[in-house]
């Protein structure tokens, strides 16, 4: 079994207001593709409720750094009460979504993901010694890179959602909530 070190533990992002589900999803996937992560969508659940659409997504993309180490980022997204509203942007009417978005970010650094150093007790001992004493500078650097990746993604998503909040004004549909988004 691979060794996993938790680097980001339940980092949350909550937003309520105008956004575009399709664009948000596309932005996140595009970001992962540009950074060289492989796509993985564990769960995609959608249903229509009386108060709007409910969408639940679990994305778990990964990126192999070496043949021994890889990054795994897990994003759990829940979008509630998602409705279509018309807004005015630069004089044009566009249709976007309005609802609540909650995201939880987790990231971990996985070593020996091919389980090559577990088949014998001697291998396991050697692996532990190397991980604890010899590879420390490399693993710390890798963990810092992973944390930087997740922080950058978090910032991009925040910026994307803020763009909708300050650029658009709904002209039809349910009124936007007055309370500020929680970040």
């Amino acid at each position: 079994m691979a060794e996993r070190t938790l680097v980001v533990d339940h980092m949350r992002l909550m937003y309520e207001g105008l956004f575009d589900v399709e664009e948000l999803y596309a932005m996140i996937q595009e970001w992962f593709r540009e950074k060289g992560y492989d796509k993985r969508e564990d769960k995609n659940y959608e249903t229509v409720t009386p108060t709007g659409k409910y969408v639940e997504l679990v994305l778990e993309p990964w990126k192999k750094i070496t043949d021994y180490a890889k990054f795994v980022v897990k994003i759990r997204m829940v979008m509630e009460d998602v409705k279509k509203v018309d807004i005015e942007r630069e004089g044009l009417k566009v249709t976007v979504n309005q609802g609540k978005v909650s995201m939880i970010f987790d990231a971990w650094f996985e070593t020996d993901y091919e389980n090559r150093w577990e088949s014998k007790p001697e291998f396991f001992f050697i692996r532990t010694m190397f991980d604890r004493f010899i590879f420390v500078p490399y693993t710390e650097r890798f963990k810092a890179r992973l944390l930087e990746d997740v922080n950058q993604l978090y910032g991009n998503i925040k910026g994307f959602l803020n763009l909708y909040r300050y650029e658009s004004e709904a002209v039809s549909g349910p009124p936007t909530p007055t309370q500020f988004p929680k970040f």
């Binding site: 589900v21 399709e22 664009e23 999803y25 596309a26 996937q29 595009e30 593709r33 796509k39 995609n44 959608e46 659409k53 969408v55 997504l57 979008m79 998602v82 979504n97």
Partner: peptide, 16 residues
């Protein structure tokens, strides 16, 4: 997902 009309149909990995 496209057939079902789901919201999350964007696929930047389609060229992979």
């Amino acid at each position: 997902k496209k057939f079902l009309g789901m919201e999350t149909t964007a696929d930047p990995y389609r060229a992979v």
